[in-house]
Simulated scan of single mutants.
Amino acid sequence: MYRPKTTLEQWRMLQAVVDNGGYAQAAAALNKSQSSLNHAVAKLQDQLGVSLLEVKGRKAFLTPTGEVLLRRSRALTDTVETLEGLARNIECGWEPEIRLAVESIYPPAQLVALLAQFQPQSRGSRLQIYHSVITGTEELILNGSVDIAITSMIPRGFMGQSLCTVEMVPVVHRDHHLATIGRPVSGEELAQELQLVIRDTAAKPRELGGWLRAENRWTFGHFQDALQVVKAGMGFLWVPRHLVEEELEAGCLKVVRLRDGGSRSAVLNLVLPDPDQAGPGTHLLAELIRGLHNLPLNE
Rank of each mutant, 00 (worst) to 15 (best):
G210M: 15
G22L: 03
A179F: 05
S263F: 10
P280H: 08
R183Q: 15
L297V: 15
A16T: 02
P120E: 01
L284Q: 14
P64Y: 13
L248V: 12
A40W: 02
Q195T: 05
S51C: 03
L272K: 01
S186K: 08
R74W: 04
L285W: 00
E207K: 12
N31R: 15
P275C: 02
D260G: 08
T180W: 06
R123N: 13
G124F: 09
E81F: 12
H293L: 13
P240L: 13
L248D: 06
S132P: 00
L48N: 05
N294H: 15
L127K: 05
Q47D: 09
F223N: 13
Q47S: 04
G182K: 11
E249V: 11
T219K: 09
P240F: 09
V166S: 10
T7N: 07
Q119F: 15
Y23R: 12
L243E: 09
I154K: 01
G262E: 11
R206K: 13
C92T: 15
L69M: 12
E167S: 15
A26M: 12
S263H: 11
M168W: 00
L115W: 06
C164S: 01
G209F: 09
N298Q: 13
Q277P: 08
S35D: 10
L115H: 13
P120H: 02
Q195P: 00
R257N: 11
K204R: 15
I154R: 03
V244I: 02
L285C: 07
E215G: 03
S186Q: 13
R74L: 12
F220W: 03
M1H: 08
L212F: 14
P273H: 11
E9S: 06
E249L: 12
I141Q: 00
E67R: 13
D78L: 08
R290G: 12
N269F: 00
D175Y: 01
I141L: 05
Q47P: 07
Y23C: 09
P184W: 01
H173C: 14
S33H: 05
Y2A: 07
V80H: 04
R71I: 06
V230H: 08
V50I: 06
G291D: 14
H283F: 04
F158C: 00
E84K: 13
Q195V: 02
K43D: 11
A203N: 06
R156G: 03
P170M: 06
Q161V: 01
A60Q: 08
V267M: 11
L258E: 15
P108I: 00
E207D: 10
T65R: 09
V146T: 07
Y130F: 12
G187L: 05
N298C: 02
E189F: 07
A75W: 03
V80S: 10
L227C: 02
W11V: 04
L285A: 10
N143D: 15
F223S: 08
W11C: 10
E138F: 00
V244G: 04
D175F: 04
G93M: 12
W94H: 07
V112Y: 14
L227K: 06
D78N: 12
P120C: 02
V146P: 01
K56N: 03
L140R: 01
P155T: 06
P205N: 07
L8N: 01
G261H: 14
S152K: 11
E139C: 00
V185Q: 06
V133E: 10
S104W: 05
Q117A: 14
Q277F: 01
R174L: 08
S104K: 04
L243V: 00
K43M: 10
L111H: 14
V146A: 01
G281P: 15
H293I: 04
V80K: 03
V244R: 10
M1Q: 07
R71K: 10
E54S: 08
